[in-house]
Amino acid sequence: MKRLEALDAARFLAFCGMVLVNFRIAAQVAPDGGWATALVDALEGRAAALFVILAGIGISLSHIAAPLLLRRALFLFGLGLINMNVFGADILHFYALYFVVGAAFLTASARSLWLGALGIVGLAVLANLTFDYSNGWNWATLTYNDLWTLPGFLRNAVFNGWHPVLPWAAFLLIGMAIGRSELHTICIQHRLIMWGFGAAVLAMFPSMLVTDPDLVTYLGTESIPPGPFYILAGTGSACMVIGLLLKLWPKLKRLGVAPALTAPGRISLTLYVAHILIGIGALEEAGLLDGSLSPVQIVFYALGFCVLSSLAGLLWSRWFTRGPLEGLMRRITQPRAA
């Protein structure tokens, strides 16, 4: 299948959403009820879910072999551990664990992938009924007290971290299932849009039917804690974005905006690390990680970084086909031809 450029564009949009969310987390910006707060609230958990679903689609479309996928998982795990020392909400080491789960489903049918995703969500629900989700967390400072102990790290990675395997690995399997379909056809694109919209709307109702505060939280669509209807909402919004971009892509190409979306989307791993080291790093150097920024200020700073990321992607694509970290991962994990 010819490369679907719209998926690269979706990856860049997911990156931009994560930048908005992560900059707010790092800068400790207090919500004010305005449009900027509402925008980032709407993106929280959704942008990262889109990112993971796109990874699953990429796995299916690339027909990657299990050994190579596991080597890439090991690379991302090491990079994520390094990144965690700078930014505690790192997603890369979680990504690596999702890849391990995905490797076990590489030859599975679309139906088996959907069932696997459902099973992961079911295990997450069971874990939340059995264990204390707050264990290890200091919610006032958003720090995890025993992260660098073996029990704490495993608990964080599998159960109650920022993006734990239970249930976040379901997004990867869902993406793999979507990647089994004929994404280039109008029929599939319409299904993604309509079913995605329906899922996102349906996910909002369960929390409205209960009054217990704990149930309202868990049956809601917030990413912390990630309940089953958060997975439904995240999947629905991701499907809508993917379907709309696939359908509208010919028009976007005619408007001339396609390269500004696809070029940075192809180096999203490099940009993800850059937004922490450079974007958040600049805020730290300026002494602005103390909660002094307003929601509007952090949104404009984040959007400015996204524009610069797009320009960097365009410039880089003139001379190179892969980003620096993408190329390094390929060089380390891809076996050389004899």
Score class of each variant (00 low, 15 high):
Ser309His: 06
Ser294Ile: 06
Gly220Lys: 03
Pro226Ala: 14
Arg111Cys: 09
Arg111Lys: 15
Leu61Ala: 11
Trp137Asn: 02
Cys306Ile: 01
Phe229Tyr: 11
Ala26Gly: 01
Pro259Trp: 10
Leu244Lys: 10
Lys247Asp: 15
Leu293Ile: 08
His275Met: 15
Leu118His: 03
Trp137Ala: 07
Lys253His: 11
Pro250Gly: 06
Ile178Phe: 04
Ala140Lys: 08
Ile91Leu: 11
Leu288Gly: 04
Ala110Val: 04
Trp148His: 14
Gly304Cys: 08
Thr221Ile: 11
Ile193Leu: 07
Leu303Ala: 15
Ala73Tyr: 10
Thr321Asp: 15
Phe99Val: 02
His63Ile: 01
Arg11Lys: 14
Gly179Ala: 03
Gly58Phe: 02
Met176Lys: 06
Lys247Trp: 15
Ala38Ser: 13
Ala170Glu: 05
Gly313Trp: 01
Leu219Ile: 05
Gly102Pro: 05
Ile276Tyr: 12
Val241Thr: 10
Gly304Ile: 07
Val296Phe: 13
Thr270Ile: 01
His275Glu: 14
Pro225Ala: 10
Ser109Glu: 10
Leu328Ile: 00
Leu308Trp: 05
Arg46Met: 09
Ala140Glu: 13
Gly122Leu: 14
Lys2Ala: 13
Leu261Ile: 00
Glu5Asn: 13
Tyr95His: 12
Val52Ala: 10
Arg266Gln: 14
Phe205Ile: 12
His93Trp: 04
Arg254Gly: 00
Phe300Ser: 12
Leu150Trp: 15
Pro31Gln: 09
Ala312Ile: 13
Phe51Gln: 03
Phe75Ile: 01
Leu219Cys: 08
Phe131Cys: 02
Gly56Gln: 08
Ala233Tyr: 11
Ala73Trp: 08
Val299Asn: 02
Val100Ala: 13
Leu283Ser: 07
Met18Thr: 06
Leu154Asn: 07
Ile91Tyr: 02
Ala103Leu: 09
Asp214Arg: 11
Arg3Glu: 12
Lys247Pro: 06
Leu92Ser: 04
Ala42Gly: 11
Ala48Ser: 13
Leu311Cys: 03
Asn128Ile: 00
Ala282Met: 14
Gly56Ser: 12
Asp212Asn: 14
Ala286Cys: 08
Leu69Trp: 06
Ala233Asp: 03
Phe77Glu: 07
